[in-house]
Simulated scan of single mutants.
Amino acid sequence: MNKLSTFYKKRFDAFLLHLTEAKSLNEDNVHKLRVDIKYIRSLLLLVEALHLDTVIVGKLLKQLRPVFKYSGRLRTIQVCKSLVLQHNVKNQEKVIQILEENQSKISNDFVVALEKFKLDKFKKRMEKLYQVLERTTSTELREKADKIILDELDLIYKLWASSRGEENYHDIRKFFKIIKSLLQLLIDIESSDDLEREYKVVNETESTLGNWHDRDVLDRKLAKIQSLAPNPEFKSLVREIKNKNRSEKNTHIKEFKQQMLINFLKR
């Protein structure tokens, strides 16, 4: 196997491990599985750009879709519970109870998605992909990866320049994740100080957006819970949690804006 095939195999093997571990419904294991799938989707984008085998890419993406969908729903509830507990508000267990009731059904849907995942088919498709990757040269790989990174940065700049503000942060985060995945690949293939520096900046920015994203998800969830509040006391409880959460959310927004201005917009 060449370096490229070896790198892809390492990422796919991690996914298969976390696919098994996620059956425990442990928050950390579900998170790792989500990270793996996002990573794989970014790497498959490169395979498409190299025009290697779009049929295999399409089949792999289709197979990953249900697991990604239901793990996302479960992850949302897990993140919300974790953040509510961190706020340490009196009587917050009432909100936790509602989240746990939601989690029960979502967990069942996720387990069903895992049970339906055809592991043998996935492994066979992976093996075909490794064979295709063996034909890729380092020069071709670098050219395509660089082009995707520049294209994603261009999209980030356009979204940043629009008037929609936070509405675009989710997409900006997705584009940063793609760039991060490809930089990790390039570092593994041909490590350099420049690549390491670029990765550090992108990783820090994407992490800040990740922290913002978690609070934004909780903000939306609390809005739904508040709209169904059975009495003024419960509504007041949810409002208190929302205010604390929004304060943290705004802190991450300021940090992200500063990172963009310093690391990306002054170049």
Rank of each mutant, 00 (worst) to 15 (best):
Q259R: 06
I77W: 04
I189H: 04
V238P: 05
E115G: 05
L43G: 08
L83Y: 04
H51A: 14
K224Q: 15
I189L: 09
V202P: 02
K177Y: 09
E248L: 11
P66E: 06
H213C: 05
P66G: 06
V67W: 01
R34K: 15
K69Y: 14
K118Y: 11
L133W: 08
V217S: 08
Q97N: 09
F117D: 04
N26C: 07
K118F: 09
D151G: 05
L43C: 08
S191F: 13
Q184Y: 15
Y8S: 00
Q97A: 13
L60Q: 02
E27T: 12
L183P: 04
H213R: 11
Y130D: 01
K59P: 00
K124F: 04
E255H: 14
S5M: 08
R65S: 13
R135M: 15
E115R: 09
R197T: 13
N88Q: 08
T251Y: 15
D188N: 15
V35F: 12
N102S: 15
V84P: 02
R239P: 04
A161N: 09
L25A: 09
W160Y: 11
V111N: 04
D188V: 08
P232R: 03
R173Q: 09
E233P: 04
R34Q: 15
R246Q: 11
E101S: 02
N26E: 12
D120V: 03
L4Y: 12
I156R: 00
L209I: 06
Y169I: 10
V95N: 01
W160K: 06
D53I: 11
L99N: 10
L61P: 03
F7K: 00
G58Y: 07
L141P: 08
T136H: 05
D36T: 07
F175G: 00
S71R: 02
V202K: 01
R164M: 08
Q131G: 10
R239L: 12
I148V: 07
L159H: 00
K177D: 07
R11Q: 13
L119D: 00
E143L: 07
K59D: 04
I148E: 10
E93G: 02
Q97D: 10
K9Q: 14
M1H: 08
F110L: 03
M260E: 02
P232K: 01
H170D: 10
M126D: 12
P232T: 00
R75F: 15
E100H: 05
Y199N: 12
Y70F: 14
L222R: 02
A229K: 04
I178V: 14
D188F: 15
V30D: 02
Q259F: 08
L25N: 11
H252E: 10
A229P: 03
L44P: 01
V95G: 02
K90D: 11
F122T: 00
K249V: 01
D188E: 15
Q103N: 06
I106K: 06
F110Y: 07
L16V: 06
V35T: 11
R11F: 02
F175Y: 10
F175R: 11
A14P: 09
V35P: 04
P230K: 06
K105I: 10
A223P: 05
K10Q: 13
K62V: 07
V112N: 04
S107V: 03
V202N: 03
D146G: 01
K59H: 09
L17Y: 11
P230C: 06
M260Y: 05
K235V: 05
K235A: 13
E101I: 02
K128S: 10
F110Q: 01
S236W: 14
K224E: 15
E48R: 14
K174R: 11
L159R: 01
E48S: 14
N91K: 11
R215T: 06
F175D: 07
